[in-house]
C-alpha cells in the first residue's frame, strides 16, 4: 500500500474494570482500513467487535481503559486528541450507524430536525438551508415524500425507515469513514438488502470507507472487500473476502464458517464449535484464546507470544494455521 491507510489501529488493548474483575476486552489488535474500502469485522457475541468500534469512535464507557496501542485516523492520533477535536471529527469525518435504529434516534424530535442538527453543528449552514438539505438527504436515502416525512417522529416510521434516517444523519456531512454496527440486524431480509444497497451505493459515490460490524457471514461475503475475524478480543485473521472464505487459515474462521447454515448443506454437514469463549477476567488467559476450543492445538500454543503472521496480504494469529 503506497498511501497511508485512512484508519489504522495498532496494537490496541482495552480493559474494563468491573466489580468482579478486569475484563481484557481487546488485546493487541491491529488492522487498517484504506480510503473507500469496505472492511467487515465478524465474530460471535463477546468477541470485541463493538468495543473496537466504540474505541475508534472514542465513545467508550468510563469503566474502560485503553492500556496500549495507537489509532491513527487521517493523520490524527485519535488517542491523543482532545475532546473538542474529537467532537469536531465525529459526525463530520467519522460517523456511525447503530444496530437498533429506532433506539438510536431521539424519540421526541422530528427526524428532519435530527438530520438538520448535524448540519447546523458541522456544516456551517443556517437553519433554513439545514432544513432544506435534510429533506434532500431524506430523498437521497430513498424515503418517499421526504418533505412530509421530515416532520415525522421516529415512532411514526418503520424500522427500515428509521435506519434510513440513521444513515441520512451519518452521511449528512460526507464522512470519510462510516462505522456500521450490525446495521441490519432485526430488519426484514428484503429491507436488509435495500439498506445495504443504499450504504454500498452512497459509499461508492462518495469514496467513503465503511467498517461493517456483523455476525452475518453472508453479509460480509457480499459487501466487504476484506474481512477481519475476531475471537475473544483478538484479531485472529484478516484477509481479502474471497480468499478468506475460499480457504480460511485460522482454525476459528474455518469453524465459524463450517457452523453457518448454507444452501445445499444438510444439518449433519454443519459442525458446531466446541466449548465457549474463555472468561476474559481470568489472569491466566492463554496466549491463544481459542486454544481450549481448538482441535489443531499443539504444545507451542501455550507459550507466549501469540504469533501474528502476515503473508500475501493476509494476517493469521496462529501457531498451527490451516
Amino acid at each position: 500500500m503506497s498511501q497511508p491507510p485512512l484508519l489504522s489501529v495498532e496494537d490496541l488493548s482495552v480493559e474494563f474494570r468491573t466489580r468482579s474483575g478486569t475484563v481484557r476486552a481487546l488485546e493487541a489488535i491491529s488492522f487498517a482500513i484504506a480510503r473507500g474500502e469496505t472492511v467487515g469485522v465478524v465474530g460471535e457475541s463477546g468477541s470485541g467487535k463493538s468495543v473496537t468500534a466504540y474505541t475508534v469512535m472514542r465513545l467508550l464507557d468510563d469503566a474502560a481503559r485503553i492500556t496500549s496501542g495507537r489509532i491513527m485516523f487521517g493523520g490524527l492520533d485519535m488517542l491523543g486528541a482532545d475532546a473538542g477535536t474529537l467532537a469536531e471529527l465525529r459526525g463530520r469525518e467519522l460517523s456511525m450507524i447503530f444496530q437498533n435504529p429506532r433506539a438510536s434516534l431521539n424519540p421526541i424530535r422530528r427526524v428532519g430536525q435530527q438530520i438538520a442538527d448535524v448540519l447546523l453543528r458541522h456544516a456551517n449552514v443556517g437553519a433554513k438551508e439545514a432544513g432544506e438539505r435534510a429533506v434532500a438527504l431524506l430523498a437521497e436515502v430513498g424515503i418517499p415524500e421526504p418533505s412530509r416525512r421530515a416532520k415525522a417522529y421516529p415512532f411514526e416510521l418503520s424500522g427500515g425507515m428509521c435506519q434510513r434516517i440513521g444513515i441520512a444523519i451519518a452521511l449528512a456531512c460526507r464522512p470519510a469513514l462510516l462505522i456500521a454496527d450490525e446495521p441490519t440486524t432485526g430488519l426484514d431480509v428484503t429491507t436488509q438488502a435495500t439498506i445495504m444497497d443504499l450504504v454500498s451505493e452512497l459509499g461508492r459515490a462518495r469514496g467513503m470507507a465503511t467498517m461493517l460490524i456483523t455476525h452475518d457471514l453472508g453479509l460480509a461475503t457480499e459487501r466487504c472487500d476484506r474481512v477481519v475475524v475476531m475471537h475473544a478480543g483478538h484479531v485472529v485473521e484478516d484477509a481479502p473476502t474471497a480468499a478468506l472464505f475460499a480457504a480460511p487459515r485460522h482454525p476459528y474462521t474455518a469453524r465459524l464458517f463450517a457452523a453457518t447454515p448454507r444452501p445445499g448443506l444438510a444439518l449433519s454437514e454443519i459442525s458446531t464449535i466446541p466449548g465457549g469463549l474463555p472468561d476474559l477476567r481470568r489472569d491466566d488467559l492463554p496466549p491463544c484464546r481459542f486454544s481450549t476450543r481448538c482441535d489443531r492445538r499443539r504444545d507451542a500454543c501455550d507459550a507466549p507470544p501469540l504469533p501474528r503472521v502476515t503473508h500475501q496480504g493476509r494476517l493469521v494469529a496462529c501457531h498451527n494455521p490451516l
Partner: peptide
C-alpha cells in the same frame, strides 16, 4: 426473499430481484 439472502462464502452471480 430468496434473492435478499446473502450466502456465506459465495459471491452472487446474476441480477437480483429487488423490492421497493
Amino acid at each position: 426473499l430468496v434473492d435478499s439472502v446473502a450466502v456465506p462464502g459465495q459471491i452472487r452471480e446474476g441480477p437480483r430481484l429487488r423490492l421497493s
